[in-house]
Structures are given as C-alpha cells and as structure tokens.
Amino acid sequence: MSRRRKIYEGKAKTLYEGPEPGTLVQHFKDDTTANNAEKHEVIDGKGVINNRISEYIFDQLNAMGIGTHFIKRMNMREQLIREVEIIPVEVVVRNIAAGSLAKRLGLDEGTALPRSIVEFYCKNDALGDPMVSDEHITAFGWANPQEIDEMMAIAIRVNDFLTGLFLGAGIKLVDFKIECGRLWENEMMRIVVADEISPDSCRLWDNKTGEKLDKDRFRRDLGGMLDAYQEVARRLGVLNENDPVPTGGPRLVKG
C-alpha cells in the first residue's frame, strides 16, 4: 500500500485516508485481542480472512438495501469504505445464551432465547464496554431516539439475513455485534452498518457438533482459531476447499 496518512488505529484494524474525499482505506490487521486487549497475539492470516468474509457479507447487505460503509475490497488486507461518523455504541443481537449474557443471568450456555434480544454497549475499552440503555444513549447525546430505532431495525434485519446465511453453511449464529455510523450525503444523513462483520464479531457454532468457529477459540484458549476462521470462509464460498490459509499481503504502513 502506498504511504497514506493514518486516521485511526484500533485493535484489529487501521484506517487511512482514502483516494477520494469522503473515503477511507480500512486495513485488517492480524492482531487478536481479548479482555479489552489484556490478551494479545498476532495470528498471521487472520486479517486476510476477515477482510474476505466481511467483504462478502457487506456486499450482500448492500444488495439487500441495508446500507453499509463498504465500497469494495482493494487487496488482500484492505477495503475502500465511505467515511462515516461512528456512533459510540455497539449494537449486540443475541439469539442463544452465551458469553456475558449467560454469566449475567445464570443461563446455561447454548440455551435458546425466547426471541432475539438487542443490547447496547458503550464503546469504551477503559471501562470494559459497559452495557447501556436507551436512556443513557439519549442522555449523553450519543444518538437520538430516532437513530436508536434505526439501529435496532437495522440490527434485526442483519440478524435475519445472517441467521439464514450461516444456517445454509451449517453454522448456528449465536450472537453478533455491529457498529453503526452516520453517512452524510450532501444535506442528507442516514444510518449505515460500519466496521466489519466476521468471526471476530460473531459467535458461530457448527450446527451439528456445536464446535466454536469464532473468536471464543482465542478467548478460551481452545486453539485452532485460524483454522476455524478458514472453515467459515470456505463454507461461505469465500475460499476454495483446498486453498491454504492466506497470509502475507500488504502490511501496516508506519507513520
């Protein structure tokens, strides 16, 4: 990648200025973190796989009329995206009890929920991304009531789509998180899906065996995280059956 000005660097991705006004280049890193970056490893090839999976899903969402920031994949590790104003709230949709929900409510992991549940979390690593309510979001000016309704509606539509997509690949969608942003086009603003959708941001279990095919393999020291991500990519048709784990590709540009 040619030398570009860095806009922002997160735990798993870096944003650079794009080739045109209103665009950014999103670079997928191999860094893998858990427990708000207390646990950190570099797993070669993870960023390449997440780039491909996220590209595939965002292309499908765009085609369905669910707006995203995604424009196109540029190379193995980078996407061209629209610049959006990120709303500092993570939207989590849960279909099956797992993770923090199971711990909070004393549920057995794997318990099917009565219906899909939408939760909001404040994007703040220093505070551990605390769960927040609509009241918190509006009181602190992170989003207004109409934007909250839009984010919830988008999250439910994404859940419906992803549930069917993964089920067709023999995968159970347990839960996932998305980020949303305000996309300004002239004087018009709309809420779109931003960031990424990949095994980093979804809990995915094999439909028959219950094997975890997501970041929990890293969180819980199960091993085989890259193999699991590659399996998801192959089932979605993003990678061919006999393709090796893709590694390398453009690396981070410093400065």
Rank of each mutant, 00 (worst) to 15 (best):
M1G: 11
R3S: 08
R4Q: 07
R5E: 13
Y8A: 08
Y8N: 12
Y8Q: 05
G10L: 07
K11T: 02
A12G: 04
K13I: 08
K13V: 07
K13H: 08
T14L: 04
T14K: 00
L15F: 14
L15Q: 09
Y16W: 07
E17F: 11
G22V: 00
V25W: 09
H27V: 04
F28Q: 02
D31E: 06
T32Q: 08
N35M: 09
N35W: 14
N36P: 01
K39L: 10
H40Y: 11
E41D: 13
E41L: 11
V42E: 11
G45I: 03
G45V: 01
G45H: 05
K46T: 01
K46Y: 03
K46P: 05
G47C: 09
V48T: 02
I49Q: 05
Y56K: 11
Q60Y: 06
N62E: 04
I66N: 04
G67Y: 09
T68K: 02
T68H: 12
H69M: 01
I71R: 05
R77E: 08
E78P: 00
R82W: 02
V84G: 02
I87D: 02
I87W: 01
E90V: 01
V91S: 00
V91M: 00
V92S: 04
I96Y: 15
I96E: 11
S100K: 05
S100G: 06
R104T: 11
L105T: 01
L107M: 14
L107F: 09
L107Q: 09
D108H: 13
E109L: 07
A112R: 13
L113G: 12
L113D: 09
S116M: 10
S116Q: 14
E119N: 12
C122H: 15
K123T: 12
A126T: 15
L127V: 01
L127P: 06
G128N: 12
D129Q: 07
P130A: 10
M131C: 10
M131I: 04
V132N: 10
S133T: 14
H136Y: 15
H136V: 11
T138N: 06
A139V: 09
G141R: 09
G141W: 12
A143D: 04
E147W: 07
I148C: 13
A153D: 13
I156K: 05
V158K: 02
V158Y: 02
V158H: 08
N159K: 00
D160C: 05
F161Q: 07
F161T: 06
T163W: 14
G164I: 04
G164T: 12
F166Q: 10
L167H: 15
L167I: 06
G170L: 13
I171F: 09
L173F: 08
V174N: 03
V174D: 02
I178E: 03
I178T: 01
I178N: 03
C180L: 13
R182G: 08
E187P: 05
R190H: 15
V193R: 08
S198L: 05
D200I: 14
R203T: 14
L204M: 14
W205I: 06
G210F: 09
E211V: 00
K212G: 00
L213R: 04
K215F: 10
D216E: 09
R217T: 13
R219W: 00
L222N: 02
L226D: 04
L226K: 11
Y229R: 10
Y229E: 02
A233Q: 03
L236P: 07
G237A: 03
L239H: 14
N240K: 15
N240L: 14
E241T: 06
D243C: 08
V245K: 11
P246K: 00
L252V: 09
V253H: 06
V253Y: 03
G255D: 05
